[in-house]
């Protein structure tokens, strides 16, 4: 990739003897929306915290917009917005005071009205004390502060934590719109569906190592479901044979659960005529996906 916006080379971080991340390599191009997914403790936040110069790597290097994340951190942060997973702000300030304080770091003119525009979009009361805000409203404040200087790159660590579905939708719409104007977006999540909604490419990290970098379309093709069936009659599970099933688990009282990568239509056809008390088809956890596709 030529001139990647984020260029991570052989990046490692150890906390004493415990592993944070190991030999992570990643390139993210201009204008991409790139998802960084993995279960809790996989190393997503560690990678992001190194990019934001909050912690220091024990090996390798990382560059943002061609600049070294340690030596040129100030220049990088002029052009990067950051939303942490825990949205914390100065509790003694009110929202407006905090956002004005944030704005002054970028030496934006007073006439810059991005605060009012963004606060309006997220229905934020600028006069309220930070200490009195709910977790969701603090997250909104965090989102607004990350965008007031119109960054070219937005880095987010679990950005939707605390946001209600309505605000998530407003937020995603804003991200899509900013991306169309040229903003590159890099964000971590352990929720596959939100990554699928936004991203063009994803990197999957497990136990500190990147195990796969994929186009989201390829991942979607591998769509995996978690299925629970409670039969209303005795079933010989040994005869339950349908392609695309894995990790079949027969529980008591005629309950069967398994991972399924085939067509839902085919599954429903197979079950046609059988007495079923309950059928649940849901998204599996990332761990289960990893176990299914990436047996490492």
């Amino acid at each position: 990739m030529q001139n990647p916006v984020i260029d991570i080379t052989d990046l490692s971080k150890f906390y004493g003897k415990s592993r944070g991340i190991e030999h992570v390599n990643l390139e993210i191009g201009e204008g991409e929306i790139f998802g960084f997914i993995g279960p809790n403790g996989a190393g997503k936040s560690t990678t992001i915290r190194i990019l934001m110069n909050l912690i220091f790597p024990t090996g390798g290097s990382a560059r943002i917009l061609g600049m070294d994340v340690i030596r040129q951190t100030k220049e990088i942060k002029q052009k990067v917005g950051y939303i942490p997973s825990d949205a914390n702000a100065y509790s003694s300030m009110d929202v407006n005071e905090f956002l004005e304080y944030s704005r002054r770091f970028y030496q934006l003119p007073d006439s810059n009205n991005s605060i009012i525009e963004l606060a309006g979009l997220f229905d934020l009361d600028l006069k309220r004390k930070i200490a009195d805000l709910s977790m969701g409203n603090r997250k909104k404040v965090s989102i607004v502060q990350s965008l007031i200087h119109k960054p070219g790159l937005l880095i987010m660590d679990e950005p939707t934590t605390g946001l209600d579905p309505l605000m998530q939708s407003v937020f995603f719409e804003l991200l899509r719109s900013e991306n169309q104007k040229g903003m590159t977006i890099f964000f971590s999540s352990h929720i596959l569906s939100e990554v699928q909604m936004l991203c063009k490419r994803v990197a999957i990290i497990k136990e500190g190592k990147i195990i796969q970098i994929e186009d989201i379309d390829n991942l979607r093709k591998k769509q995996l479901k978690k299925v629970f069936i409670e039969f209303g009659e005795d079933i010989d599970f040994a005869l339950f044979k349908i392609s695309g099933t894995k990790n079949l688990n027969a529980g008591p009282e005629n309950v069967l659960s398994f991972l399924y990568s085939g067509s839902v239509n085919e599954l429903v056809s197979y079950l046609w005529g059988k007495k079923i008390n309950n059928l649940i088809i849901e998204e599996p956890s990332l761990d289960e996906i990893f176990m299914h596709y990436y047996q490492i």
Binding site: Q78, P84, N88, Q145
Partner: peptide, 15 residues
């Protein structure tokens, strides 16, 4: 310990 260091150190300021 107020957990605002993450905010402060991600502004365009050096340590």
């Amino acid at each position: 310990y107020d957990k605002t260091a993450e905010y402060l150190l991600t502004r365009p300021v050096t340590r």
